[in-house]
Amino acid sequence: MPGRPLSRRTTLGSALAAPLVLAACDIDPPPSDPTSSATPEPPEDAELVATVVAALVRARGVLEEALSAAPDLAPVLAPVADAHAAHLDVLVGAVPDSEVPTAPRPSLPPRPAAVLANVQRSEQRLLRTARTGCLDARSGDLARVLASVAASTSQHAAALTGSAG
């Protein structure tokens, strides 16, 4: 089947940065003051990526709290945490000078079933954010990456539902 191979963050970063360069060439007149030190605009999808990164960080916080509240769930939750880490790695690297934000640790009930239900809700929320990001992305390559993030999140959410019995 035809894929559109990307080489992780480098290519994705180029995909994000390219529209800014093209826009500068095609649209913008030369600056009247060449010594102007105005801060350049970020790539057009950078804000969108930041939103998905923040959602991933929030979901990671829920998972960490869940593992703390119910350590027996580790075999179920570890694959989800691994996927989030890989998604963060690619998306954070795609935006120059970006930093991983922090999220407040949520308070979860001590019962495993309730913990799992919280994680499931958190993953559904992340899925909606990734999906929205995919649909709004100007870069087709970024849209493809976010579509894969959404598909992975949906897979893991289904696996969590299966493990909940």
Partner: peptide, 16 residues
């Protein structure tokens, strides 16, 4: 997953 498969990190984009 209904067919016995597993959740993946990059479904549809394994080169990532």
């Amino acid at each position: 997953l209904e067919l016995g498969g597993e959740a993946r990190t990059w479904p549809g984009a394994p080169e990532l």
